[in-house]
Nucleic acid binder design. Structure first.
Length: 513
RNA sequence: GAUAGCGUAGCUCAGCCGGUAGAGCAACGGCCUUUUAAGCCGUGGGUCCUGGGUUCGAAUCCCAGCGCUGUCACCA
């Protein structure tokens, strides 16, 4: 336990005095809440005489004591409301201890209190609760940062250190209630998508997180060990191969919201664990899937903002259908003026060099094209745009293009300069798939650490036959960043991955071994 | 990983042309029965991130380390 601060000692002393007065600072009974701050502030009509018998609970966030009367603010799950506490109202008899001692001296900011009373409007026009009863529901032993909002809505002494906010998200949520909206919007996004997919009749499923072979994406995995089986297991980097096995099994529309794990760098766009939704639908192709993506993401924007236009940083992004569509070669030609569609590997290398793009000697043709696109085009695409028809070398799970040799039927949606989804007509030719895996093994030998592994069981499934299928993955964290105008992935994840806290600081992560 | 900035009271920050710490809020004592960033009077609170060095003297200058943040590079 870290050294207690002066204020923490005072709170512990207050706790003891409360106990000495015969008051349980952590009472077990339910408290019969029947009203919420935001509802009262929105719906109170003095002429109707509503909210005249309310019971509220929450944290006491401010307390202005003026002798024998006080104004406190109570914060519940919906917001804050002012409570007027008059000594002789809450202490009708001779004994004024509850007001003079408990309320004025022993309660602290951050304590949970319960209030019964009626709603009224103060002289200065604020809807408030006139308390007839006041009870302590839970004592707080640590002082919260005190953030004050002035008449102009400007926050003073705002709790804004990003590290503190992420590490102690509970504090962040209490004193920066605005962030709650970010997470509510994130949940709206999930609900919208889930409802949409369910209405189409697709089945939500769960597939293994711990996998003997990882696959479905190009990434380095987390490795772990199962004791009983005495075997290495990997945490999934994608769901693709399992969901396609379900398509083989005859489930014609299947999706999963999944935590995936990639053992790679961290940045404002990358958390080691992140969430995707993956969807596979039989008898469809990537053209069809593009329409679905436009429709569902437009719906998300409408459900969150009531508008297809969303302000993201300096840009107003409009998700209204239809979105622009470019082939990858068209996009590269558009942004660089160079047509690379007919180039071989040596020419591509030369082009990359001319464009000042550093290309690792190990990279194959597909990766070089991807580098050129990533360097020269991606960041320029602000409005939602589909990029289609990728080189076969960088898409080992996608079906070869029906009319363009060397390409696959794949698209990504780019928005605000970042990929938000990836989709293709799924490769269902087991012989082609085996060859693609073998090419991946070759890339692996050349040193590509993200090359895929060959999955025999997946190939066996394909050999039984998989219907033509369209598949999709949407990065939920990235989309949440856009939909909530958040600059960092850490702002849309409640508990982003952090280094352990330094020793000597309180409650360092991994305090016991 | 590269580069810049930051680390001082519970919180937000000032002090940094070297002379061993300040403000506001919060806390504590007092006054105040419709206030609202309530107000007024008074009080306490700090290994100035850590470790070295320069100096009579370091929060301040130098070196090293740790942590965080921003930007850039790679993966969604």
């Amino acid at each position: 336990m870290a050294q207690l601060s002066e204020q923490e000692i005072v709170r512990r002393q207050n706790l003891q005095k409360i106990i000495d007065l015969g008051i349980n600072p952590y009472p077990p009974e339910l408290f019969p809440v029947n009203a919420y701050a935001a509802d009262i502030k929105r719906d109170f009509k003095p002429e109707e005489g509503n909210f005249q018998d309310v019971v509220l609970a929450g944290r006491m966030m401010s307390n202005r004591v003026m002798g024998k009367a006080s104004f406190a603010e109570i914060q519940d799950t919906t917001g804050r409301i002012q409570v007027y506490i008059n000594r002789d109202q809450i202490c009708p008899g001779e004994d004024k201890t509850l007001y003079d001692q408990v309320f004025k001296h022993l309660l602290d900011l951050g304590d949970f209190i319960g209030v019964k009373g009626y709603t009224f409007i103060t002289k200065t026009g604020e809807i408030s609760i006139h308390a007839s009863e006041l009870v302590l529901l839970s004592k707080s032993l640590k002082p919260l940062p005190v953030v004050k909002i002035d008449a102009d809505g400007v926050a003073h002494d705002e709790f804004k250190d990003p590290e503190q906010r992420y590490r102690q998200r509970y504090v962040d949520l209490v004193v920066n209630p605005g962030i709650r909206k970010v997470f509510r919007d994130r949940t709206t996004m999930y609900n919208t998508m889930r409802n949409y997919l369910n209405q189409k009749g697709y089945l939500e499923v769960e597939t293994p997180v711990l996998q003997p072979l990882y696959g479905g994406a190009a990434a380095r995995p987390f490795k772990t060990h199962h004791n009983t089986l005495d075997m290495t297991l990997y945490m999934r980097i994608a769901n693709e191969l399992y969901l396609k096995r379900l398509i083989v099994g005859g489930i014609e529309g299947v999706y999963e919201f999944s935590k995936d794990f990639r053992n790679e760098g961290m940045s404002r766009f990358h958390n080691p664990e992140f969430t995707q939704v993956e969807l596979y639908v039989a008898y469809k192709d990537y053209e069809w899937m593009m329409n679905l993506v436009e429709e569902v993401i437009e719906k998300v924007a409408l459900d969150i903002h009531g508008d297809t236009k969303v302000q993201v940083g300096d840009h107003l992004i409009d998700f209204k259908r239809p979105w622009k569509r470019f082939t990858m070669f068209e996009a590269i030609q558009h942004f660089t003026g160079i047509d690379i569609s007919e180039m071989d590997e040596a020419q591509l290398r030369e082009t990359a060099k001319k464009l000042n793009i550093h290309i690792d000697g190990k990279l194959g043709k597909g990766k070089i094209i991807d580098e050129i696109f990533g360097d020269k085009c991606e960041a320029q695409l602000i409005q939602p745009t589909f990029i289609t028809d990728y080189p076969v070398e960088m898409s080992p799970l996608a079906k070869k293009h029906r009319s363009k040799p060397g390409l696959v039927e794949r698209f990504e949606a780019i928005c605000n300069g970042k990929e938000i989804c990836n989709a293709f007509s799924e490769l269902n030719d087991p012989i082609d798939q085996r060859e693609r895996f073998e090419e991946q093994l070759e890339l692996g030998k050349r040193g590509d650490e993200e090359a895929m592994m060959l999955d025999e069981d997946f190939l066996r499934a394909l050999e039984y036959g998989m219907p033509p299928t369209a598949g999709l993955g949407i990065g939920m964290d990235r989309l949440a960043m856009i939909m909530t105008n958040s600059n960092s992935i850490q702002d849309v994840i409640f508990f982003p991955q952090m280094k352990p806290e330094a020793q000597g600081k309180e409650q360092g992560a991994g305090g016991k071994e």
